Structures are given as structure tokens and as C-alpha cells.
Amino acid sequence: MRAVAETLLEVKQLTITFGGLIAVNNLNMQVRIGEAVGLIGPNGAGKTSAFNLISGVYKPTQGQVVFNGEDITGLPPYEVCRKGIGRTFQVVKPFGAMTVLENTMVGGFIRTSNRAKARSIAERVLEQVGLDSKANLLAKNLTLADRKRLEVAKALATEPKILLLDEVLAGLNPTEVEEAVQMIRTLNQSGISILMIEHVLQATMALCKHIVVLDYGKKIAEGTPEEVTSNPEVIKAYLGDEYETAIN
């Protein structure tokens, strides 16, 4: 059963069209305070488009984004960020010629114009994500796993109430996935709500007690990991018959 808590993020009938393509179709979804929610579905299902709508990159064709009780629909990304929504991007592009610390300070400047304060925020965040020992390395010299951590650090430095994580586990080996899952779990336990897009289903199921499934822009299921993975429509659209055979 889903925990009873105050709603932090709610999208209502959220829709966006690109020409004749409906990328997100009448999406209704909630994330509660302190909750970790997974957003899954096949490639092209509209997951990243939903993130772009929530974070202000796209303006919806119709519908609302309500955050912390306030309608933030259509606000530009920097204002959405200041409200308390941080996000990562699927393709990580750090400032390669800047250090790990300097990259993270960029996020801190959303909260302060004081360089010393931004540095303090960045140092704290780098310790949280396990990059404090690499603070003075150039970002271009990081491994993929550490670039992913830096992407999370930049978002964390904006001091969000909720983190939107877009495939932060993609491309990582099993050990790196396990370490990243523990990092995300610790962030969630610290009080930051999580909404994550991820194809590494085992990790999603371990982190999230509530899952929303999209297909062709529409929500086809939501519930606990057990409920969505046993849903015939989810198996057909995303998990495949092999998954159904494996669990029977």
C-alpha cells in the first residue's frame, strides 16, 4: 500500500503534441514528500518528455504541473529549479575544462551569488555523492560512472526538494549500478523525493515502492513493483513474454 504523505509534485492531464505526435497524453501522476517513484516504459514512451514538461523545458499543450501546492505550469527551467525541482539529463555533458568542484558550484549559484557559499554547497554535495576526493580533477577526465555522479551532484547543488533522475544507471557495470543505487537510496532517506526514469528494472524495483508505466505517451499502469510487473498490459508493452514466463 502506498504511504500516506503530503503530495509534493502532481501532474494533471499533462499533454504535449509535436505536430501530429502526442508525446505525452493526459498524464496524471503524483510524487509524495519523501517518496521514490519510478517512471518506466519502452523507448519513445514519453518519459523524458514528461520530465521536460515538469522541469519547464517544454510548455504543455494542456494540463498542469503543481509543485508544493503551487501551479508552476509553463515557468522557465531556472524558475522551476529555484522552486526546488532538480534534474539530471540522460546524456551527461559536464564542463570538461572545469574541475569537478567548479562544475558542481554552477548548481550552487542558483541559490547564491556568493562564490564562497557556492563552493561550500558544492563541497558538501561532492561528499554526498562520493566525489570529494576528485574535486580538483578536470571533468573531462572522469569515468562514465563518475560523470553520472557529477550530473547528480550538479542537480543536488541546487538544493532540490525533489530530484528527477533520467537514466543515471545507463551504461554502468553491475558494481557501479549497486553503488549508484545505494547513493540514490541515501539521498532519498535524507528527505529528498525521487522521480526516476530507468531501464535497469532491478534497481528501480529496489528503490521505488511506487511505479508508473508509460506507453505511447499514456499511463498504462501504476502501483507497487509487484503490481506493475504482473500487469498483462505492462508485460505486453514493455517487459515481454519472456518476463511473464520467468515469473510463472
Rank of each mutant, 00 (worst) to 15 (best):
4 V>M: 15
6 E>H: 00
15 T>I: 06
19 G>R: 11
21 L>A: 12
26 N>K: 03
29 M>C: 13
32 R>T: 02
33 I>Y: 07
34 G>V: 10
35 E>D: 13
40 I>L: 15
41 G>P: 00
47 K>L: 12
50 A>G: 04
53 L>R: 00
62 Q>K: 15
64 Q>S: 10
68 N>Y: 03
70 E>C: 02
72 I>Y: 07
72 I>R: 00
74 G>C: 08
75 L>N: 13
76 P>F: 14
84 G>R: 06
88 T>R: 12
89 F>E: 07
105 M>F: 09
107 G>R: 07
108 G>A: 11
108 G>D: 05
109 F>H: 15
110 I>F: 13
117 K>P: 02
119 R>L: 01
122 A>G: 05
127 E>W: 04
132 D>H: 14
133 S>L: 05
133 S>V: 14
134 K>Q: 15
135 A>W: 02
139 A>Y: 03
145 A>K: 06
146 D>L: 06
151 E>V: 02
152 V>T: 03
152 V>L: 13
152 V>F: 04
159 E>D: 15
164 L>H: 15
170 A>E: 11
176 E>K: 07
178 E>H: 10
181 V>C: 07
183 M>F: 04
188 N>R: 12
188 N>D: 03
190 S>D: 12
194 I>M: 08
198 E>I: 00
199 H>V: 15
207 L>Y: 00
208 C>Y: 00
211 I>F: 02
211 I>Y: 03
215 D>W: 04
215 D>C: 09
216 Y>F: 10
220 I>Y: 13
224 T>F: 07
227 E>F: 06
228 V>K: 02
229 T>M: 14
231 N>Y: 09
231 N>V: 11
231 N>G: 11
232 P>N: 14
238 Y>T: 08
242 E>H: 10
247 I>C: 06
